[in-house]
């Protein structure tokens, strides 16, 4: 099992990325994450909604009600300009971090 706490620190960016591609709603995002990671990482819904709250508070995403599904109205999220900038920043940061960690993690067997 992978260490999910390391991923947790980058969930904001992961979710922003998915919303950047297109507007999405909660379940779609959790499903997409499982799908792309081949079920190696599954986000807990509780965590997901916490991230939504945080991102929305920081005005990195905004929500609107979309089509009606079988249950009720879906709440979609779209990324804001600020969100895009934040994501770009996160990606730059990650590259640097990854570089540093790789210095010590690679080259041994």
């Amino acid at each position: 099992m992978i260490r999910s706490d390391i991923i947790r620190g980058h969930l904001d960016a992961i979710i922003l990325r998915l919303i950047l591609e297109k507007d999405r709603y909660g379940y779609e995002i959790s499903k997409e994450i499982s799908l792309r990671t081949d079920d190696r990482y599954q986000i807990k819904e509780a965590t997901l909604y916490a991230v939504f709250q945080r991102l929305e508070k920081k005005e990195l995403i905004e929500s609107y009600f979309g089509s009606v599904s079988r249950g009720g109205k879906r709440k979609y999220y779209r990324i804001t300009t600020l969100g895009k900038a934040y994501l770009k920043e996160s990606i730059e940061e990650w590259k640097v971090t990854k570089n540093i960690i790789d210095l010590f993690m690679e080259g041994l067997d």
Binding site: Y27, K31, E45, Y49, R70, G71, R74, K75
Partner: peptide, 16 residues
């Protein structure tokens, strides 16, 4: 609002 959202998404998951 969150409760509605959570419930709606859980329902979709169950349908799925």
């Amino acid at each position: 609002a969150i409760m509605e959202e959570v419930l709606e998404n859980l329902e979709e998951k169950v349908w799925d």
